[in-house]
Design a protein around this nucleic acid. Structure first.
Lengths: 219, 219
DNA sequence: TCCTTTCTGTTGTAAATACAACCGACTTGT
DNA sequence: ACAAGTCGGTTGTATTTACAACAGAAAGGA
C-alpha cells in the first residue's frame, strides 16, 4: 500500500498533505487496496456505496448498459482520480452506473464516515481533506457540465469537434490521445459507431484533423 | 433578509442548523440578498464567481446560448436550491453557463471563503455547513448524471420518456408539473421543438400520457 | 504459423430529426 | 377593444442518423 503514497500525494484528495501524513492517514482512514483484472467490475449499478475511491493504477470506465445491451459510457477514470464521491451521501440512493476496469487496476477504498468526521487521533488534515473532497467533486461537476455540452450538440460532427477540441485544451496540445477506441468513443458521445467512423473520415478528408488509432491531431 | 430564515432553514446548505443560528450566520457569512426581475441575468457565462448562491424566492434557469442563438438549458433552480457551488473552487475557471431569472427572484450570496474557513466568532456550524455543501454538490452531481442519461437516448421519444418518468419519480406522482414550456423543454432535452411537439402528440394518441400546458400525466 | 477475435472503415436503406413556414389560440399591454 | 407578441401544434422537405451487413487489417492465442 505504501508504494502508492507518491501517487496519492498527487491526487486532489490529498493535495497539500505530506508523505508522512498520508502514511498515517492511510491507517487512520482505514484504507483498503483492492485489485481488479481487466474487464472486472469495480462497482455495479444498483449497489450501495459508503466508500470514496481513488484509482492507484490502471484505468477505469464509468458506464451503463440498458436492457437491450446498448452501452453508454459516462467517463474515464485515470490514475489518481477520485470516484464514487457522489454516492456516499446519506440520501444518495444506489449507484446509477457500473465502473469497470479497462486494464488491470488497483483501487483505494476510504470509508467516507472516517474521511468526513474528525477522528480522535492526531490527524490534522481532516478539514483539509473535506475541503479537497468538495473541490474534487466540484471539478467533477464541471466535467459533467462539459460533457452535457458535447451531448447537447445535434450532429455527430459537432459532438466530435466539441469533445476533441475540449480534450485538446485539457491536454494542452493539438495532438491528443483518447482513452477510448472507436466503439467506446461512440458510446461516450452516444452516437452510432459506423456513422461516427464515417464522419471522422470525412473530417479527415476535409483537413480538419488526422488520426491513427486513438491518437488525434486537430488542425 | 430575516424573513427568509424559514426558507434557508429548509435548504440543504443549512440543514440541521436552527433558526437563531441561521440568523447569526447570515452576518457571520457576510450574506447579501439581491433581487432580479424576470428575464434578468443573475450570472453570466465567462464571469468569475466566489460566492455560493441560494435562491430565496422565484425561479431560475441555467442555460447557454451559442453564437448562432441556439439555446441549451442545463437545468432549473427552485426555491431553496443552491447553485454556483461548482465554480467557487480555486482552479475552477469561469462560469460555463448563464443563470437567468424566469420570474422575479431573490438570491442569497455567501462568500465561499467565509463559508469554508472557520471564523473567529462562535459559529459552531461551519463544519456542518461544509459537509452540507459536499452533500449538496454531490446531489447536484447525481442530477447531472441523470440528465446525461436522458441525453444519451437516441430518439426524442426516449428522451421524453426517461425525463418524464424520472420527474414522476422525483415528484412522487404520475401527475407532474414541469418548470418548462415547450420551447424550454426542447432546449432542455436538446431536441427540436416542433419534432418534440409532434412526438408528444403521438404519445398522447397512443395513450402513453396526457398533458395540458406544462402539466403532464403518465399512464 | 495458423486460426480466431477484435477493430475500423464502407456502403445502402429505413427511420428519425432538424428546419422552415404557417396557423389558430391565448396573453399582454395600451 | 385592439394590436402585438407568445405559445403550441401541424406539415413538408432536406438532412442526418441508426442499423445491419460486410470486408480488410491488426492483434492475440494456441
Amino acid at each position: 500500500m505504501k508504494k502508492f503514497v507518491p501517487v496519492l500525494k498527487r491526487t486532489k484528495l490529498f493535495s497539500g498533505v505530506g508523505d508522512d501524513d498520508i502514511s498515517t492517514m492511510l491507517s487512520c482512514l482505514g484504507a483498503r487496496l483492492l485489485t481488479y483484472e481487466k474487464g472486472e467490475y469495480v462497482l455495479r449499478q444498483g449497489e450501495h456505496l459508503s466508500d470514496i475511491l481513488v484509482l492507484a493504477e490502471g484505468s477505469l470506465h464509468i458506464q451503463r448498459d440498458d436492457y437491450w445491451g446498448n452501452r453508454s459510457i459516462l467517463g474515464h477514470i485515470g490514475v489518481g482520480e477520485i470516484f464514487g464521491e457522489a454516492y456516499v451521501a446519506p440520501e444518495s440512493g444506489t449507484l446509477l452506473n457500473d465502473v469497470i476496469a479497462v486494464e488491470d487496476s488497483s483501487v483505494f477504498f476510504f470509508d467516507v464516515k472516517r474521511v468526513i468526521s474528525t477522528c480522535s487521533s492526531a490527524c490534522r488534515f481532516h478539514t483539509m481533506v473535506v475541503q479537497n473532497l468538495f473541490f474534487a467533486i466540484s471539478e467533477k461537476n464541471r466535467g459533467l457540465v462539459q460533457k452535457l455540452d458535447y451531448m447537447s450538440r445535434r450532429t455527430t460532427r459537432e459532438k466530435l469537434l466539441s469533445y476533441l477540441s475540449e480534450e485538446a485544451k485539457k491536454q494542452n496540445s493539438a495532438s491528443i490521445t483518447l482513452p477510448f477506441n472507436r466503439q467506446q468513443l461512440a458510446d461516450y458521445l452516444s452516437v452510432d459507431r459506423s456513422a461516427m467512423s464515417n464522419e471522422l473520415c470525412k473530417m479527415r478528408d476535409e483537413g480538419l484533423l488526422e488520426f491513427e488509432k486513438n491518437r488525434f491531431r486537430l488542425f
